[in-house]
Lab assay of single mutants.
Amino acid sequence: HMTFVALYDYVASGETDLSFKKGERLQIVNNTEGDWWLAHSLTTGRTGYISSNYVAPSD
């Protein structure tokens, strides 16, 4: 899985979204569905959809 880092804080707007904080590391589970990616937070252990605009590759 690809690992990304959050560029900004994000508060989930629905049950399927994932809230995260700036600097949080996220593993991308599925990024084939446009701008919203299914991600797993390595910080909180939660999984949900994130906006690809809010993250950048961590490598």
Rank of each mutant, 00 (worst) to 15 (best):
K22R: 09
G14K: 15
P57Q: 09
L18C: 03
S13C: 14
W36T: 10
V11H: 10
R46I: 06
K22L: 05
S51P: 15
P57L: 12
G48D: 00
N31E: 08
G45P: 00
S51D: 13
S41L: 03
Y10T: 03
E15V: 10
T47C: 12
D9Q: 02
A12N: 03
I50W: 01
S58D: 14
S51E: 06
K21T: 09
D35F: 10
W36I: 13
T32N: 09
G34R: 08
Y8Q: 09
I28F: 03
D9G: 06
D17L: 14
W36L: 13
V29P: 04
S52Q: 08
S51A: 09
Q27S: 08
S19A: 06
N53S: 14
T16M: 13
A6Q: 00
N31Q: 13
Y10R: 05
G14T: 13
G23S: 02
H40C: 14
I28T: 03
A39R: 00
Q27R: 14
P57E: 08
D17W: 14
E33D: 13
S58E: 15
S52A: 13
G48P: 00
T3Y: 14
L7E: 03
G34Y: 07
V55K: 02
K22E: 05
G45F: 05
S41K: 01
S13W: 08
S19N: 05
N53M: 14
A56F: 09
Y49L: 08
K21N: 08
R25K: 13
G34E: 08
A6S: 05
D9P: 03
D59Q: 12
M2G: 09
H1C: 15
T43V: 12
L7A: 03
V5S: 03
R25V: 15
I28S: 04
W37A: 02
N30A: 11
Y10Q: 02
F4S: 01
D9A: 04
I50E: 00
E24K: 01
D17A: 10
G14H: 13
V11C: 11
A12K: 04
R25C: 14
Q27H: 11
L42N: 04
V29L: 15
W36C: 14
N53Y: 14
Q27Y: 14
D35Q: 11
D59T: 12
L26F: 15
R25W: 12
I28Y: 02
W36Y: 12
V11I: 13
Y49P: 00
I28G: 03
L18S: 01
R25F: 14
V11T: 11
R25N: 07
D59S: 12
V55R: 02
G48C: 05
Y49Q: 03
H1W: 13
V11E: 13
F4N: 00
H40F: 14
N31S: 12
T44L: 02
D59I: 13
G48T: 02
T47W: 13
S13A: 11
P57W: 11
G48A: 03
D9N: 06
S41Q: 04
L26K: 00
Y49I: 06
G23N: 04
E15G: 08
S41E: 01
F4C: 07
L18M: 12
G34A: 11
T16Y: 14
N53F: 14
L7N: 03
T47V: 11
N30Q: 10
Y49S: 02
H1T: 12
T43Y: 06
T43E: 13
N31V: 11
W37P: 01
M2W: 10
T43N: 08
T32F: 09
M2A: 09
Q27F: 14
F20Q: 00
V5A: 02
V55F: 10
Y8V: 11
K21M: 10
